[in-house]
């Protein structure tokens, strides 16, 4: 990691925290969403696999340090033993996979629409599929409800996460039009 990577990782971690601190913004359908989980997708789509995984690891470390950095001012060690801890630790593989797919899928010469679609796909596979694969078994284990029921319990969150994946892809395309940044 160069110093420049270090700076990007630290500041992107700060952005993920900041997005948890700004009040929820209503999406098109009028449903308010917290922006923090979208911050994880954005970090991955913009920075690429390694730096994004590092950035979300920094956020997790800040939680462990007792700082209220998660959405709604949550933080501290209690989060790690809670029922949703799997979704928190899942950020690391989710960010890595999202960033990796973004790196291999997106090529610059394609149309904006195609690139947005590809980045959305990357965010869905990494930010939803991989994340849920990490979060659901932990939920099933600590709440003792079994995988199937834990899966059902997580389904209501999917539409919101799909919307975030699309918005994250659109934002990423616009950001990368404004500043050149290589994924790694």
């Amino acid at each position: 990691m160069t110093t420049r990577d270090l700076g990007l990782v630290a500041l992107m971690a700060a952005v993920i925290v900041a997005l948890g601190a700004v009040p929820a913004i209503p999406l098109a359908a009028g449903v308010p969403i917290t922006l923090q989980s979208m911050g994880v997708m954005l970090a991955a789509l913009i920075l690429g696999p390694r730096r994004a995984a590092a950035a979300v690891s920094v956020v997790i470390a800040l939680v462990a340090l007792g700082l209220p950095v998660l959405a709604g001012g949550r933080g501290g060690l209690a989060v790690f033993a809670g029922p949703t801890a799997g979704f928190l630790f899942g950020w690391v593989p989710a960010a890595f996979v999202t960033g990796f797919l973004a790196m291999v899928l997106e090529a610059t010469e394609k149309s904006t629409l195609v690139r947005t679609a590809q980045l959305t796909l990357a965010a869905i596979v990494g930010g939803i599929v991989v994340l849920y694969v990490c979060g659901i078994p932990w939920l099933a284990f600590v709440v003792e409800i079994g995988l199937a029921k834990a899966f059902m319990a997580s389904l209501p969150f999917v539409p919101g996460d799909l919307a975030k994946a699309i918005v994250a892809a659109v934002v990423t395309v616009k950001v990368r039009q404004a500043v050149a940044i290589e994924r790694k």
């Binding site: 420049r4 500041l11 952005v15 913009i46 950001v175």
Partner: peptide
Amino acid sequence: DGSVLALAVPLLVRVIVRSEAVADAID
């Protein structure tokens, strides 16, 4: 008011530009 794009795009662009300056200063 309330546009996610209007918040996230400028915020991220500024952060990326700032991170370069921060890295230069650290070096």
